[in-house]
Structure formats: structure tokens, C-alpha cells
Design a protein around this nucleic acid. Sequence first.
DNA 1: CTCATGCGTAAGTTTTCACTTACGGTAAGT
DNA 2: ACTTACCGTAAGTGAAAACTTACGCATGAG
Lengths: 112, 112
Amino acid sequence: MAKHYSATESLAALGDPTRRAIFERVAARPSAVGDLARGLPVSRPAVSQHLKVLKEAGLVTETPEGTRRIYRLDPRGIAAMRDWLDAHWSGALQSFASFADEQFETKEEKPK
Amino acid sequence: MAKHYSATESLAALGDPTRRAIFERVAARPSAVGDLARGLPVSRPAVSQHLKVLKEAGLVTETPEGTRRIYRLDPRGIAAMRDWLDAHWSGALQSFASFADEQFETKEEKPK
DNA sequence: CTCATGCGTAAGTTTTCACTTACGGTAAGT
DNA sequence: ACTTACCGTAAGTGAAAACTTACGCATGAG
């Protein structure tokens, strides 16, 4: 069980395109490792390794079901990313607004 | 100017730890390249290259100011990531809910 | 015009990491 | 017990990419 739920780890995990593909498929429906591998251009062990990273990042959870392991999205990991994003969102708007003001004032001084 | 604003590109860009550090510093306050490099354990050209990636991902904007180039956050890139996250958010809650139900039913069959 | 400052780019090196094959281990079926 | 299906891990390889140094260009100060 991941006890971190840090946005940093989540972003690093979703930086890889294959991991994003796996993440999106798991988001669509909880799946087993083999089923995921069958729909991807990589081997099953590769999927296993990616799922390990996603799990340690707190983005998915694992549940044994017979001989299979079902992976599901973990809302808490996604929440961490959302919070991180929102924290920078206000800063972004602020920078953007002050920049727009600056531009406007400059144009005022020099209309053309 | 980036015309995409795809969440995919943004996530790939923020996958690198150095790029995340740059992104956060720019989020705190619009900065020039040299100033950013002085506070990081990498060379100035490295920062330049990272800023290029962030810019192409639509996460920052560049504004010449004398001989310096001021970088600011671009809210549109962040918005793309937010949308992507929200799109999977519902799926996450759905999976989590049905999983919780399953667990509950199992416990009902086998109270202890 | 000359010099200094601030950046971007090119080229080359090093390191990271995604992937494969091989192996071992667990759970269910016959 | 034997076999089959499903999966994680180890070890090694190859390719992507992050970093450095060297260079060239633009802007502003003197």
C-alpha cells in the first residue's frame, strides 16, 4: 500500500506513454495483467513492471482474485495530482493576468 | 506557439524531475533562464532545453524583455491536464465504488 | 564600435529506463 | 500428484534523453 500519494510520484509515473495507456485502460474498466498485455504492443512482464510503478505511485490498487490480479484506479492518487495542479492553477492565472496588464500598458504607451 | 495543448504532451513534459522543479519555480514567479539555472543543480543550457520542452507542451510562455527571456506559466496547458484527469476521475470513483460493494458483499457471506 | 550580459543551439557523452527472455512461485482444474 | 493458467522478479540489452562544453547571435551599456 502506498502511503505517499505525492503528486510528484504520480507525474513521474504518468510520464511514460505505455504507462498512460495502461492507466487509461484500467480507468475504463478494472483489468487483469494478461488482459492488459493482450491489448498492448509490449510483453506481459513489461505490463507487470509498469503496474508496479503505478501502484507505488498510488494510482492503482491490486486485488488478488483467484490466480489473477485485478487492477483498479486509486482515486487518492488522482486526487493528489488534482490538488497539485490546482495549487499551481491560481499562480498561473495570476501570472497570466499581470502579464496581460503589462502588455496592455505597454500598448497604451506605444499605440502603434 | 503550441497549438495542441494535449494532456499527453504535458504529462510527458512533467515526467522529468528537473522539469517539474523548473515548472514550480516559474509557477511561483515569472523568471528568466539564468535566474532559474542559478537555483538548480544543472547548467544554464540544460534549463534552456527543458524550457523548450515545457513551452512546446504548452505549459509555459516566453516573453523577450531586453536581453532576457521571461518565462511564465501558461494556464491553457494546465487546463488540458486538468481535463484529462477529470475525464478519468469519474471512472476511478466508479471502479472504487463497485469494488467497495464487492468487498462488502464478500464480508457479508463471510463475516469473519 | 567594443565589450559584457543573457540565451539558444550543436555535438558528443553518460546515464536512465523501458523492454525482452528466463525463471520461480501460487492457485485452480483434471 | 500433475498440469495448466496467471503473474512477479532477475538479469541483461538497447535506445531514448538528460546533461555537459563549445559556439554564435542579439541586446544594452560604456
